[in-house]
Amino acid sequence: MPKLNEAQTAQAAYVTDTTLARHFGVNRATIWAWVNRNGFPAPVKLSPQMTRWTWADVHAWEAAQARAG
């Protein structure tokens, strides 16, 4: 699957694990594993049943990964 472009990611401040998985071409479990092991940004709990990531945090993490190697 192709990565989402900046225009697509700029549309929403928050994103689901499903959207992140599509963006990175991995499954949802991988996103959660990255949170636990690879320094991926922690999600934000918006309500008891709603957990999301901010695109700003995700883009900052991507930029740091690109600089690191």
Rank of each mutant, 00 (worst) to 15 (best):
P41Y: 07
T16I: 09
A42R: 05
Q11R: 13
A21S: 11
S47E: 00
R28Q: 07
A29L: 03
W55L: 05
N36E: 09
T9K: 14
A66Y: 14
D57E: 05
A13Y: 06
W32G: 06
Y14D: 00
W61C: 01
Y14W: 09
T30D: 04
A7N: 08
Y14S: 03
N36I: 01
A68R: 15
A56K: 15
A42Y: 10
P48R: 07
W32R: 14
E6V: 10
T18I: 06
A68T: 06
M50T: 15
I31Q: 10
Y14E: 07
R37H: 15
V35K: 11
T16A: 02
F40G: 02
P2R: 09
Q49M: 12
M1W: 08
T9W: 04
W61L: 08
N36V: 02
V58K: 14
T19F: 06
M50K: 15
T51N: 01
A60C: 00
A7Q: 12
T16G: 07
K3R: 11
E62D: 04
I31T: 10
A33S: 13
V44M: 01
A68L: 14
T9H: 13
P2A: 03
V15S: 00
A13H: 09
A7L: 06
T51H: 10
A33Y: 14
L20M: 07
G39R: 04
T54Q: 10
Q65T: 10
A60L: 12
V26E: 11
N5P: 00
D57K: 00
A63L: 11
F24I: 03
P41D: 08
A10M: 11
R28S: 01
W32L: 08
S47R: 05
E62Q: 06
H59I: 08
W34D: 08
A42N: 11
T54I: 05
T30L: 05
Q8I: 04
R22S: 01
Q11G: 07
T30E: 13
T16V: 08
H59F: 02
A7S: 14
T51Y: 07
D57P: 11
Y14C: 04
G39C: 06
K3C: 08
Q65V: 08
Q11M: 08
K45Y: 04
L20V: 04
V35H: 08
W53Q: 01
D17K: 12
R67N: 12
A64R: 15
H23N: 02
E6F: 04
L46P: 09
V35Y: 11
T51W: 04
Q49E: 11
N36L: 11
P43W: 09
L20D: 13
A33T: 14
A56M: 10
P41W: 10
A56P: 04
P48T: 00
M50L: 15
T16H: 09
K45M: 09
A10D: 15
W53I: 02
G39T: 12
P48Y: 03
A7W: 05
V15G: 01
I31F: 14
P2V: 02
A12I: 01
W34T: 08
A7E: 13
E6L: 12
G69D: 13
N27T: 12
A12L: 02
H59Q: 12
P2S: 06
T16W: 10
V35L: 03
A56R: 15
M1Q: 04
S47T: 12
A12C: 03
